[in-house]
Amino acid sequence: MVDDGAVLLVEAAQRGDVLAMNDLLDLLAPYVGRICGPIALDSGQDATQEALVAVFRALRTLREPGALYGWVRAIAVREAVRIARRESRSAPAELADLPAPGDPQLATDIEDVLARLSPEHRAVLVLRDVEGMDERSAAALLDLPAGTVKSRLHRARDSFRKAWKS
């Protein structure tokens, strides 16, 4: 949900008030950083900047400020996947290669675990586990068939849940 304050900031920014833009960036940067960080990993800062540049460049044309977060989320996920794909030099390992549940490394090295997944897998996990989206919405956002998301999610999330619970 977008509160009235955020709507007012969007409207003021659209009129060219740079202090409103600054306040809006304060609001959106942590949100975009939480999405881009786990998807783009080492390129998370670049992805966050690129996503926010895309958001702010298009903000002039946003007609429904009430839909701000959903709109920002879609841009952030797409930019993070695009940049992570561009930066990745090796093919992602199979999920079967994940550390076994109970592996003590998991508790301290989640970035290492994320690095073993493809950018799309990481995006699916972020959308579902951080953003609380359902599979159909996650699929639509990633331009993937719903069935693909479901199977990716099932495998990826299952491994993570077992690992983190242990």
């Binding site: 740079v18 833009m21 702010f56 989640i110 951080v130």
Partner: peptide, 21 residues
């Protein structure tokens, strides 16, 4: 535990300038 990305001040300026034609 999920990694988060943060912008520095110069990156923030680039973002804000992107909105200003």
């Amino acid at each position: 535990h999920w990694p988060r990305a943060e912008l520095d001040a110069v990156q923030r300026l680039r973002v804000l300038a992107a909105m200003i034609a």
